[in-house]
Design a protein around this nucleic acid. Structure first.
Lengths: 93, 93
DNA sequence: TGATTATATAGCTTAATAGCTAAATAGTCA
DNA sequence: TGACTATTTAGCTATTAAGCTATATAATCA
């Protein structure tokens, strides 16, 4: 279940999309305009983020608005910290 | 530069290795014994983690001891929080 | 030196992923 | 309905990644 999020986050274009969406909701076109990739390529990235449940889309006329699923993102960050953070690693050979 | 860490972390076997190493340093064989994959497969995973600078290896006789590079891991966690954490996402359409 | 042990590397196969162009879908508006 | 706009989906290619078996390397010990 976390798998999808880690995979989604492992691509730098998708991480940039997440950062863009932190500013607020944006249409697919707006997002696309920030990159030099073609629009279909960005659309596919958005789809990966959607499948990972990291973004939510909503049609508004003939635009599609994407927004961050902050809940999932926060949960993921929490999970990461639980598993990889904190624990000290003292020379215990 | 973060790219390698995200890629390394995107695989669940490698994440489990990291968790194992949080307990303390382990030989390649010990690590390998926790999985049902073959030894060469785990060796390659260890190599990915090494290239991402997430682990450090050290020969000791004919064992090779792996230990977590806690500094890098902490740095990565810090980076993640800086970029994805905290920021609220108020309905600003 | 030769046998044994621990580990890595090579070489292969299969599957997944990122990018593209072209075509389909869905909505708007005259 | 027909033209137009925004976006997704299909279908392709090239690259990367994960797994395997077989082999190589490096250290130890008799």
């Amino acid at each position: 279940m976390n798998e999808g999020i880690f995979k989604a986050m492992s691509d730098s274009t998708r991480r940039k999309i997440i950062e863009l969406l932190k500013e607020g909701p944006k249409t697919a076109g707006e997002i696309s305009s920030h990159f030099s990739y073609t629009q279909p390529t960005i659309s596919r990235h958005l789809n990966v983020l959607k499948n990972a449940n990291l973004v939510i889309d909503q049609r508004e006329g003939n635009f599609i608005i994407y927004r961050l699923n902050t809940t999932i993102l926060q949960e993921w960050l929490g999970w990461i910290f639980e598993h990889f953070g904190g624990g000290d690693n003292d020379e215990k050979e």
